[in-house]
């Protein structure tokens, strides 16, 4: 059993601006833990968390993969970047934090290189304008407001994630029922040759949460 990262350094004040780990976060941790053996055997060199928030997931990945991997974390919210960095040091995982939207600025150099990608996106269906505004504000609203079908931000990343994944790379996505997971899966397979599986699902209050894991159907041509 891998312990949940120590978050005692984060305060209520931090959580006014940064998403506090909740059921969705913990479901992602459980999915990573269930895959821990396989992830170790993949000999992951590069781990990337997109929208890292508190940094809980990156720190947890650090406990699974150990010090011979690189941990990169991005967030559009600079306060989240600061929390992620602090959570890394609190848990003795060197998390390299970058304040950016999704993987902007990293994409060019990380092509075909990332072994594990985690993304717990803003998946809550809202008005489309609300999601846009939330990303523009770069605050806590951006951690949940997902626009139409809750997919507005996620869709942008789904168009490019295949370029980042290494040949044996894996991509873990948090999604809810309203996101229409079967549609995501068929589109990703059809457009980008990424096969996928719902590896864990749980109901939390009103939310039907799932973790979808993607991998290349065949090694891409490098």
């Amino acid at each position: 059993m891998i312990p949940t990262p120590d978050l005692s350094h984060l305060s209520a004040q931090d959580y006014e601006h940064v998403y506090e780990p909740a059921e969705d976060t913990f479901l992602l941790l459980d999915a990573l833990e269930a895959d821990a053996e396989e992830l170790r055997s993949l000999k992951a060199v590069v781990f990337l968390e997109v929208g890292s928030g508190s940094g809980c997931v990156s720190a947890f990945a650090g406990k699974i993969l150990g010090p011979s991997a690189l941990y990169l974390a991005t967030d559009i919210n600079h306060r989240a970047c600061d929390c992620t960095r602090r959570t890394g040091s609190q848990n003795k995982v060197a998390v390299h934090t970058i304040n950016t939207s999704l993987t902007a600025g990293l994409h060019q150099r990380l092509k075909n290189s990332v072994d594990i990608i985690c993304f717990n996106p803003p998946y809550v269906p809202t008005m489309s304008t609300e999601a846009l505004e939330a990303q523009g504000l770069r605050g806590i609203e951006g951690s949940w407001a997902g626009g139409s079908d809750g997919m507005q931000v996620t869709n942008t990343f789904l168009e490019v994630v295949h370029e980042l994944m290494s040949p044996t790379g894996r991509f873990y996505l948090v999604a809810v029922k309203e996101n229409n997971i079967p549609k995501i899966q068929s589109r990703m397979e059809c457009l980008y040759q990424l096969k996928s599986k719902i590896i864990l699902a749980r109901r939390a209050g009103r939310e039907h949460l799932s973790i979808v894991r993607f991998e290349h159907t065949a090694a891409p041509t490098l």
Partner: peptide, 9 residues
């Protein structure tokens, strides 16, 4: 700033 690169545009 504060050790964090800001790549936002």
């Amino acid at each position: 700033s504060n050790g964090i690169p800001n790549m936002l545009l």
